[in-house]
Design a binder for these strands. Structure first.
Lengths: 229, 229, 229, 229
DNA sequence: TGATAAACGAGACGGTACGTCCCGTCTTGGA
DNA sequence: TCCAAGACGGGACGTACCGTCTCGTTTATCA
């Protein structure tokens, strides 16, 4: 019978509790070992994330303020500043939790269909009301604060690109596209127009557009091999 | 002894200043005649535009403030608010004057080469230091203020797209691409990846990239015609 | 014939307007003359002073905060910071308006009685609830901020001392005390014990104490003359 | 069956800690019987007092903060709050240790000379840089927190007054002043002006001033007796 | 002499207020 | 009528401390 968690093992012997803690015996044991102190409060953390999402929904990313989040979460401002350097970083965490996690890799057996499905899903998700504004707000801030850019890239962009790379790799394995396909450019070709339309709003992010982009890419990739001859 | 400044003549007569203003004597003189009043000051206008450009250069678009512009230009804040609805509008005017005006249409005789030259030139210009940040700042604000979006589109985006359309049209006329080519999608395919790289900075906006994009587009367009058969 | 200020006189002489402005001729006349701009708002000023007095009454000097005053007065914080460097300065203005203005010089014909009356009145006023705490609060801040000290001295202390000096001078004129009386020390001898009791609260500020202090001072002054012999 | 947290026995078995906790079985089992445990740390106490004195020297009483003291002393904030109710109490302890202890009673054989020496010594000590500010800071806080007032009075004021009383008593015994001399008022007359000048800084706390005050007091006391006749 | 509970260092927490920066509007007097 | 100057009510910034509250880790009694 083993008790879980933190403190060691707890064994119930009739009416006596034994808390057994194994102390490591290694030589390097005696090092100064920075003292353990009070840990980050999970409650506060969650309340802050929740308040952030709520307020973005209500007022948009631009209307977001640390002060407002603190008030809504019932938290001191310092508690926010302690853990996040900026409202951008906070937003990224709040959103990456919410948005990207559930994105799945399609598997139709055909690269073209896979790509269409992936792009279609992403289009559908990203054009939902507050999301698009959050994205553009973050992008704008990323221009000024380089760390925001990095976090945004790793939090949102990278995952999508890697999903894409995996699909293309499968296509290469199946012989649908040449093995020396430049995946980076492929990604830019598919996602670039998406952001472009999202940001400028001059044309819709619909399934038709997704299909067109994929089609054009596929032709480009296929032909590229021949041209090299 | 003549007092300097302003309008009319100032004469010092012992201890009395007389400001004498000669009123034009022409025929229509005395009638009610809606009074002509002071017009927009060209000086102020120019000082404001200049200060805006300077401050963007110094502090970036995000660090820009109406208050700062007014102070730098030696102008009252009201004078700015009188003529521009927002710092975005002001920035757009300041930049469109500076950036787009000089963009020229290439004419090599070949659509592919034309496109490569056009895209290359645009890449070169847009990646210069403050410009890219201005663009992304404006894009971000455009998400919140719809009028900014419109002005940005007509001020910066539209011209480039129209230049592109003209080139493609020439290509169609020459028979290089099918006559039913979807130019909108072509534009999104070329400019989208540019903005994408510009905003995220994950890869450079170089000539090689321009060439690749054009190549892919050309293949796509060419093949599309065949497919329809 | 005096012209009303501002615009000067305008005379229509057939078709010529003459704007005649009378200018004073004193030597320093030609200086650049800083442009007139929007003046301090009397309303805001008064609201701030009133709010300060209210809040001191409610929460004491220590409980006073710029933020609170601004909120109560319905005024931006900046408006306060624009005109007063600290809550001490603000308090001094608010109180000096309220407290010192009405203090009158007694005139009984006898220095001893005059002094008793003056000191008695001051005692009565200063021991009223919030006043004493305001005074001590200001004194404490004066130790850190030298300008507060100066303002406090000129706003509160000086006037009382000067009243005292005037009374003593009349006593000298009447021959009640020697003409070379050291008034500074006399003032310290009367007011010092007052502040001491006020601040420490170990004994009351009553009429009996006032009488004692005056009595002792009078004897000291009288005898001093003789001793010198 | 849940074990109550917190108590139990800890046994070190080679490299294993066993915390064995007996769960009470009988009703009136382990009577309350407060166990003696770890006492106040002398080290921490001293470090805190030292840090307090240092920081007062550096930043003045107003610039003092519990947080700062804790950091400087290398001590947790709680350790300070455990032993002192406020920074005032802490300061009083720190200073009373440093200041008052060494004050000695003069004994010249003459009351007047004794008083001059006592007052002169006190003047010299109290006008040293941070001390005066500490005193006024404490006085100010005393107005708000009554316990601070008491502590301040017993810690600083009382001792000096008692020294004075003892000297006067000796003077009475020697017949230098009448036996019904009001010592309280005498103390207020000597120390009041001192605090007054200290707090307002309008005149120096020098030996001349001490001499004057004593002189005046002596005359006042002497004459008072006669007047009563 | 060994366990144990209070004291300890560290510092996170919900708060209050600070003094600053700008916002967009309003007011003044000069041109 | 426009302009510069800048005061105004307001909102948010990021910082400094407040006094309370966990965390494990000592360490001084007393069983």
């Amino acid at each position: 019978m083993v008790a879980p968690s933190g403190q060691g093992r707890r064994l119930l012997c009739s009416n006596i509790y034994l808390t057994v803690r194994f102390v490591s015996l290694k030589k390097g044991n005696m090092k100064p070992k920075k003292q353990q102190t009070r840990r980050r409060s999970k409650q506060a953390h969650e309340a802050i994330i929740a308040a952030t999402l709520e307020l973005i929904e209500e007022k948009g990313y631009l209307g977001l303020s640390i002060e407002g989040i603190a008030a809504r979460a019932g938290v001191g401002k310092q508690t926010i500043y302690r853990w996040w350097p900026s409202k951008a970083a906070l937003t990224i965490e709040a959103y990456s939790q919410k948005v990207t996690s559930t994105l799945q890799s399609p598997d139709t057996g055909s690269l073209q269909l896979d790509l269409e499905e992936l792009l279609g899903t992403i289009f559908t998700r990203i054009r939902i009301a507050p999301t698009s504004k959050v994205m553009t707000g973050l992008i704008a801030e990323a221009q000024t604060a380089p760390d925001v850019g990095e976090q945004f890239y790793t939090g949102f962009i990278k995952k999508r690109r890697e999903l894409l790379f995996a699909l293309i790799q499968k296509g290469i394995n199946r012989g649908e596209v040449p093995p020396d396909t430049d995946m980076e450019i492929a990604a830019d070709t598919l996602f670039g127009p998406m952001w472009y339309r999202l940001l400028l709003g001059h044309a819709p992010l619909d399934q038709k557009f997704a299909k067109k982009l994929v089609e054009q890419l596929m032709v480009g990739l296929a032909t590229r091999g021949e041209e090299t001859l």
